[in-house]
Amino acid sequence: MTNALQEALKHQPILLFDGECGFCNKSVQFFLNREKPSKKMHFAPLESEIGKALKAYFEIDEKIDSIILIRDHSAFIKSCAALRMTQYMNGLWPLLSIFVIIPPFLRNVVYDFIAKRRRKIIGRVKTCELINMEDKKRFLSL
């Protein structure tokens, strides 16, 4: 295990996202705007070196380009990640985590429907949107 990977694992929870996807970048912005004051979440694009290293460490197929939440030394993918992310959000968002009782193969039908169309919805981006300096420190690859 490399030093960079060991260092990244100290920053859990970590959200890996498609850094080239406009919808994914907007989703990260949406999360940042609704995150609890503790601001525990860290972020890394899937395409980054640390994103690739984390996927390899957790033995996640290279072809997976969905969000991945790394928490408590476990990796959650697709709807499992999205629902668990809500626990780090303000307001009523954490109530959505109740849907983890629905089997993932059913939840992921909805997730996959949106994921297949995400680049058509907003398109691709070349750089992340502007983020404040405090939040920028939580991006492991910027």
Rank of each mutant, 00 (worst) to 15 (best):
H11I: 03
R138A: 15
A82R: 01
H11V: 04
I122C: 06
L54W: 07
M89V: 06
I50V: 13
P103F: 05
F30Q: 08
M1V: 02
E47Q: 15
N108S: 11
F113Q: 00
V28H: 02
S27A: 14
L9C: 12
D65W: 06
A8T: 10
R124Y: 13
R117L: 13
C24N: 10
V125D: 04
P37I: 04
R107A: 08
F113S: 05
N25I: 01
D65R: 02
S38P: 00
K40V: 04
P37M: 05
K55I: 04
A75H: 07
E7C: 01
I102Y: 08
C128Q: 06
C24Q: 07
F76I: 03
R138N: 15
L96M: 05
K137V: 14
L106W: 07
G19L: 12
F30H: 14
R71D: 06
A53G: 05
K78Y: 05
G91N: 13
T2V: 01
N25S: 09
L142Y: 14
N132M: 06
G91V: 12
K116F: 08
P103Q: 05
L140E: 15
T2R: 04
L54F: 06
C21M: 06
K137N: 14
L5P: 03
S141C: 15
N25K: 03
R118V: 10
K52I: 09
E35H: 03
I67H: 02
R124F: 12
E59Q: 15
L140N: 14
A81E: 11
A82S: 15
K55W: 11
F99T: 00
I98F: 08
I60A: 13
K36R: 10
K10I: 10
K116S: 03
I67L: 06
L69Q: 04
I101M: 08
T127W: 00
E47F: 10
I77A: 04
K78F: 06
N33M: 03
N25G: 05
V28L: 09
E7I: 04
I60F: 12
A8S: 09
L96T: 02
G91T: 08
A53K: 08
L32T: 02
F30N: 12
T2L: 02
S97W: 00
K137G: 11
K55F: 10
I67K: 00
L5H: 06
L96H: 00
S48Q: 06
D135W: 03
A44V: 04
F139V: 15
F30Y: 14
A75N: 08
H42R: 07
L130F: 11
F76R: 03
I122A: 11
S27E: 10
N90V: 03
T2P: 00
E47C: 03
M85G: 02
L130Y: 08
S27Q: 10
K36Y: 05
S48A: 11
D61K: 10
A82N: 07
A81D: 11
A8W: 07
D65K: 03
I114M: 01
D112A: 09
I98T: 00
E35W: 00
L83M: 08
I50C: 10
I14W: 07
D61T: 12
I67S: 01
L96R: 00
A81T: 09
N33Y: 00
R118D: 13
C24D: 06
I101H: 07
W93K: 04
N3T: 10
H73N: 14
I68M: 02
V125N: 02
D72H: 09
F30L: 13
